[in-house]
């Protein structure tokens, strides 16, 4: 089963909508609360990143019997230094974003922590695609 979502850069206040909707899907499918929590946190972080750092993007969620794969692709500046971006507390968020409580520098670290596998593909000036896997077994 595949679920697709669009993250609208014009409506940053709506960031978190896709994660909320997919959480509802997972609940209906009877996925364990532990896995739902992990996916919710990781996907929310990705969604916020798409809004505060990029110009929105698309999310594709594949539900298989043994795992759930979430692919988040944005059109954005790309990540110049992945190693640095993976460090907890490191952030390039704007002062405006920080005032709203974003930019804690926990985005990618949280995605790595809560997913079973994280793949970051990024190209400067083109965009970033994150692929996260969550094991169901």
């Amino acid at each position: 089963m595949t679920f697709n979502y669009v993250v609208d850069p014009e409506a940053p206040e709506r960031a978190g909508r896709a994660s909320t909707r997919f959480k509802g899907v997972l609940k209906e499918l009877g996925v364990s609360p532990k896995v739902i929590r992990a996916i919710s946190i990781a996907m929310y972080e990705g969604e916020i990143n798409m809004v505060i750092h990029a110009k929105g993007g698309t999310i594709r969620c594949d539900v298989d019997p043994d795992k759930i794969t979430v692919v988040m692709a944005d059109v954005g500046p790309g990540i110049p230094d992945i190693e640095q971006a993976m460090k907890a507390g490191w952030s390039t968020a704007s002062p405006e974003a920080r005032e709203l409580g974003f930019g804690a520098g926990m985005g990618l670290p949280n995605m790595k922590k809560w997913s079973d596998k994280l793949l970051v593909e990024t190209e400067l000036g083109v965009g970033t695609t994150l692929t996260m896997e969550f094991n169901l077994t």
Binding site: E13, G101, A104, N110
Partner: peptide, 22 residues
Amino acid sequence: LSVVMGNAEEGEAWITIQSHVN
């Protein structure tokens, strides 16, 4: 928000000074 997201538990009352829709 990321810290709350990663640490708050289900059923907890959340105290904050943030008031926007996120």
